[in-house]
């Protein structure tokens, strides 16, 4: 086990625990629970095996669902987002440019912001669509998605800026 795998594994465990025991209990303004665990899916290296990544995304959501006694919404959202990540990367960083090896190592700030925004919005949209699962709650889904995505984005930016990019 090399150090990168170890770090990845450690961040997986830590993020799941943080998400379940801290961020899922926050209830900001009554109903906003920011989702920090998206950070793991963002930071996972871009040049790794995509199949393994889909499986890890599935496991991440699955553990959070299991431990926080919710349905399968986290599982479906994080699984779908890990499946769609290459498409988001291609759209955010451009097809012609050389693809970055990981999120943190890339210097282009605007591209990174676009990537982060789309990634988190898509994840939250899928999550809330699965949670409400009804056409009647359309406006409610949009409202929850935008508000929670804002706080998640804020948290992800703050937390990732605390740690220096690994070389």
């Amino acid at each position: 086990m090399n150090s990168i795998t170890l770090k990845t594994f450690a961040s997986f465990v830590i993020l799941v625990l943080f998400q379940v025991f801290i961020f899922n209990q926050m209830n900001l303004f009554g109903y906003i629970n920011p989702m920090l665990y998206v950070l793991f899916l963002v930071n996972y290296r871009f040049d790794r095996n995509q199949t393994l990544f889909i499986f890890i995304g599935f496991l991440l959501g699955f553990f959070i669902d299991l431990m926080s006694q919710t349905g399968g919404a986290h599982t479906i959202a994080s699984l779908s987002v890990s499946f769609l990540r290459p498409i988001i990367i291609r759209n955010a960083f451009g097809i012609t440019a050389e693809l970055p090896k990981s999120f943190q190592s890339d210097p282009r700030i605007i591209n990174k912001a676009v990537f982060l925004l789309f990634f988190i919005l898509l994840h939250h949209l899928i999550y809330f669509v699965v949670v409400y699962f009804s056409w009647d709650a359309f406006s409610l889904i949009l409202k929850s998605t935008s508000l929670t995505a804002f706080f998640s984005l804020l948290l992800v930016v703050i937390i990732s800026s605390l740690f220096k990019p690994t070389k």
Partner: peptide, 15 residues
């Protein structure tokens, strides 16, 4: 895609 849809079906069952 095969893995994705397999896991999606599993998570829908879970849900």
């Amino acid at each position: 895609p095969i893995l994705y849809f397999f896991l999606l079906g599993f998570s829908l069952l879970f849900l």
